[in-house]
Every structure is written in structure tokens, then in C-alpha cells.
Amino acid sequence: MAKITMREAISQALWEEMERDPKIFIMGEEVGVWGGSYAVTRGFYDHFGANRVKDTPISESAIVGSAIGAALTGLRPVAEIMTINFAFSAMDHIVNESAKLHYMFNGQMRLPLVIRTVSGGGRQLAATHSQTPDAIFAHFPGLTVVAPGTPADAKGLLKAAIRSDNPVLFIESATLYQLRGEVPEGDYIVPLGKSTVQRPGKDVTIVTYSKMLDYSLKAADQLASEGIDAEVVDLRSLRPLDMVPVIESFKKTNRAVIAEEGWKSYGVGAEVSARIYEEAFDYVDAPIKRVAQKEVPLPYNRNLEQAALPQIADIVAAVKEVM
């Protein structure tokens, strides 16, 4: 298997899907002539042409709104919102329309729509460009919210998202594009809404996703050298949330740490820990710990920013607290 970057894996999935189905097209700010602000769609414009690689004005509402309209006609748009911070300008379309039209019109309308976007801090872009608000979007029934943490999952989940007849918010991590991993060639599909064990272990369960998967695996390596064998469960999809591998792991380890990049309050950790308490209370041997971002808007200064973001050492420390 080839070892490629996350960026290449996402690009490959898009390219292969567009070659497969002419109903698929991409649209967004700078996806075409520029080649994508994160270079994911470099070369697409020349190969697929302006009709299938559509540069849009800086109009998030028009991007998502018109992608919904196009999806209703049977096309399969992949709309790019440059960063998730800009998705707030399109919130109404994501929340009030894409998540609701199928239900509200009694199943008549289908939205084979993917919204690709980029989440996360750590690039000194300050408070408005560095957020990880993934959990907000996972609040809404009708949406599917996916956030891969490995190149292989990025490829497989993006293909599944494009083939889905449901609207999918596909959240990439700003600092994972260079991450390398083995990625199967060709038609590789990872089902939406399925969590998975990324590292088996027996002493403690670390539940995580996206960027924090990378950190959690590194934390697990450190812990292993100190004799603690951590199992790392990757949620991959935040909605639908698949708790089965989490609960199975917890029943074995009886201890859990949940690591996410976003703020702790009302976050992914809050949801996952509540569900563990609800579904496996008799197995709890220690209070569940959450590792998350400090409750401040992210600052520009590098030291301040890193002090606010969750670190590998925070995961290691939290695991030691629950042991």
C-alpha cells in the first residue's frame, strides 16, 4: 500500500469519484484556478474544466444554498467552505435546510450533498480563524458529520460521503494535511457512522477523533513506555455517533479519557462521557476525564495559542489521573 499524505488522500478520493460520476462537481472559493486554498484541488480545474470545478464568489450562504438546490435536482455537489469558521455565514442553510428538507417534506427531497470544510487551530490565525466548533453541527438530526483522523479514513469516508444521499459535513483538520499513512488504492470505502479501534490496549480507553487521534496515538506510545496499555477509539463520525466500540472498550478497561480539540463545555467529550455513564455505569472504576481546549477565544501569540490548545502531555496526564 502507498504511503501518502492526508491532502493526497482527500484529493485522490475527489478525483476518482469525479472520474466515476459526471453528476459530481465541486464548488467553492478558490477551488478552481487557484487550486484550493489548502491545495486539495490542484490540477482539477485543468482536468475537469470550469463547469465541474466552480469558483464561487465569497458568499458562503450562496455556496451552500445553491449546492442544496443543485443537489435537489439530482446532482451530487461537493461544496467547499474554506474554513469551518466561515460556515457560520451559511449556518441557516446547513441547519435549517440541509438537515431538514428530507424530513419536512415527508421524504420527497433528497440531498446528495457534501460540504467539505477545515477545522482546528494551531496556525496562529487568532480567534476568528482557529475554531473547532464540530460539536455544534453534530447537534442537528438530519445532518451527518464526519471528521477523519487518518489518510485512509479520509479517503474512504469522503468516498462514502459523496455516494451518500444524505447531506454530509466533512470536516478536515487544518494541521493534518501533511500527516502520512497507508491508503488503499482505488475504490476504498469507509462506512459513515462507524467508530473504530485505532490502537488496541487493555488498561484505559482514549476516545477521540480527527487531530486528537494523532495526539492520542502519540500519547499511547508514551504511556506504553511507562507500562500503561491504552486502547484508542476513533469516533470518525460525530453524527450518527457509533458508541458500540467505545462501550465495548470501556467494559474492558473501566477507565476513559476523551480528547477533543474544541472547547470542553457542551462538547464531544460531554456527549461521549454522558453516554458511557448511561450505558456502562456499573463498569466505571474512575471518573471519566476530558481533555479539550481552554475556554478562551484562541490568541494569536504562538505560546499563548499552544497553552490554550490540548497537547499530547495533557492526554498523558489525564490517563495517569484515571489509572
Partner: peptide, 29 residues
């Protein structure tokens, strides 16, 4: 939708970009 009537949208103005998208679908096809 069998009558090509696409609703009935209650957030003021939000269906305007959707309309552009419906037209985009026809233009594309």
C-alpha cells in the same frame, strides 16, 4: 416535487440561494 413545486420555505430569503441552485442543476444538465 412531482409537480416541480419545490416548497414552501419559511426562513425569510433563505430559499433564494436554493433557487439559484435549482437553476444551476438545469444549467449543468
Amino acid at each position: 416535487i412531482s409537480l416541480n413545486y419545490w416548497g414552501g420555505h419559511a426562513i425569510v430569503g433563505s430559499h433564494i440561494p436554493l433557487a439559484a441552485g435549482l437553476a444551476l442543476g438545469d444549467q449543468y444538465a
